[in-house]
Structures are given as C-alpha cells and as structure tokens.
C-alpha cells in the first residue's frame, strides 16, 4: 500500500514537472470558453429576441425551448472538452515509451501493475482537474454571457450542479481511457492521431449516421462519447439533433458504467499489450 501511494505521488510529480498539463489546460480553457461564450450569445440572443431569428438562418425554428440553453452550454466542458483529458492520459503513457522512462520507473517500482494503477488514479484526478478548468470556461463564461442577454443561467438550480459533478466524473474517466489507449498503442504519434481522428471525426459521424435507424441508435448509445454525454445528461449532439434520438440514450449511471468499462478495458488491455512486455 505504501508502495502504491508513493507511485501515485511519483506519477503526480511526473505530470507536473513537464509543461504538457498546463499547455493543455490553457488551450482547453480558451477553446471551451470561446465555444460556450459564442454559442451562449447566439442561443440566448435568439431566445431573448436580441438577435432576429430570420437573420440567424434557422427559419425561426432554431431556438431551443426555454430553459434548455444553460445545460447545453455548460455541457460543452465534457461533450467537446473530453478530448483533452484523453490526450493528456495518452501522452502520459506514451511519453514513458518514447523517452524510455519506463526503465527507471520499473527499476524504482518493479511491480508494474501497481504503476499502471497509480498512473490511472493520478490521471483520473488530473482529468477531474481539467474538468474544473473546462467548467470554469463553459459555466463561468457561458453564465456571464447568458446573464447579459437576460437568460437565467440556472446557477441556483440543483440540476446544474448535478451536471457539473457528473462532468467532473466524466473528465476523470476519459483521462483513464487515455492512459489505457496509450498502453494499447505505445507509439505517441499513432496514439495522438487515433485520439483526434476518433473523437473529432469518427465518433461524431457514427453517432449522426446511426441516429436515423432505431437499431443502429441502440448500438450507438454505447459509443464512448454517447455514454459520456448520457452520464453528463446534456450534450450539443443530443440537444441539437433534429431526429431526437435523445430518446435512445442510456441513463446517467449506465453511461457512467459504460465509460468506466471502456477505461477498465483499455487499461487492462494495454497492460497485456505493452506494459508487462520486455522493456528493451
């Protein structure tokens, strides 16, 4: 147990002694802040009448029903920002392979499974930290903008705080998925390409394409991004989808379990694929 605690401390030291974590946190804040602020202005402007609906090109139908704007905006933290904890997790693992730091790591702690567990736990905590940063952007900036347009940001609402809590959980789980992916695909470049391609193109397209048929939608709800959105409870994907497949979505706790299963599967798989292999 003492060994595990020391491994966790060492993993924190590893993460915090290179620049990657704060570079990613900074970009995450800027990206989500811009997106949440911009779309909050658009939706709140439409709803409050400050923006003429016909000018927005939505045919006067685009404004979501009253009350749904704040969770939609706040959920950008995870529905868009989840790629950041995945990247950080994947980089944390692949840089050990790339820079051959697995050698000193395993010399200091020869029990490798414990090291992978410590890395997963560490990245979960740091992923939650990235979640805080993302929420500061989506809730902080989003609420300010909505308030300026006279839309209630629902900050006193219990459901808003439930969403915030579940977003943090989702971001932590995504970071573990990144750790596992990095072990499954130890090549850093390949890992980054997979993360970006899957999260930015493949999964959104799959979710969109699958939403037109009921049986494909049944399967697509188990995609990691869909499960994450189900866990958080709101998403730009489900909120904006005209075919309203939101009806075909997991409960929040099911989404959480599915996401946890992905994290466990990736990490356990990575352990056997690369982590326990010869370090040459």
């Amino acid at each position: 147990m003492a060994t595990f605690i020391r491994s966790v401390s060492a993993e924190f030291a590893k993460l915090l002694t290179t620049r990657m974590w704060w570079v990613l946190a900074l970009v995450l804040f800027g990206y989500i802040g811009l997106l949440a602020g911009g779309l909050a202005a658009l939706f709140a402007g439409l709803q409050s009448g400050a923006i003429d609906p016909s000018a927005a090109g939505t045919g006067g139908q685009g404004a979501p029903p009253l009350g749904s704007i704040p969770p939609l905006i706040y959920s950008f933290a995870s529905s868009v920002g989840y790629v950041f904890p995945v990247l950080l997790g994947a980089l944390a693992t692949t840089s050990e392979f790339r820079h051959q730091t697995l050698t000193p790591t395993f010399l200091a702690t020869p029990r490798r499974a414990g090291v992978l567990g410590a890395k997963s736990l560490t990245l979960f905590v740091v992923g939650v930290g990235l979640g805080v940063v993302a929420l500061l952007a989506s809730v902080g900036i989003g609420a300010l903008v909505m308030n300026a347009f006279g839309v209630d940001p629902l900050l006193g609402d219990g459901e808003t705080w439930t969403l915030i809590g579940r977003t943090l959980l989702a971001m932590g789980l995504w970071a573990i998925i990144g750790v596992g992916l990095g072990a499954l695909v130890p090549s850093q470049v390949a890992s980054i390409v997979i993360v970006l391609a899957f999260t930015q193109f493949v999964e959104p397209l799959l979710r969109l394409a699958s939403s037109f048929l009921d049986w494909t939608a049944q399967i697509a709800q188990f995609l990691p991004g869909a499960a994450s959105d189900a866990l958080v409870g709101a998403s730009i994907f489900t909120g904006m989808n005209p075919t309203a497949t939101a009806a075909v979505a997991l409960d929040w706790w099911q989404g959480g379990l599915v996401l946890l299963a992905y994290a466990a599967w990736a990490t356990a798989g990575g352990y056997f694929v690369s982590w326990k292999r010869d370090v040459t």
Partner: peptide, 28 residues
C-alpha cells in the same frame, strides 16, 4: 541495486533535479 542502462532514459523537458525527484519519491 543502482542501475544505469545504455539507453538514455530521460524526458527531455524535465530538469535533472525533477528527473531524480520522481524516482526518489517512487522509492520513498
């Protein structure tokens, strides 16, 4: 046992002090 293997096992972005600190922490 203290071991130094041929491969350069360092993260280039970490300082010498922090490199050693990581493993000092891991080994208590």
């Amino acid at each position: 046992v203290g071991a130094a293997l041929e491969a350069a096992s360092f993260h280039p972005g970490r300082t010498a002090r922090n490199h050693l600190r990581v493993y000092a922490i891991a080994a208590g």
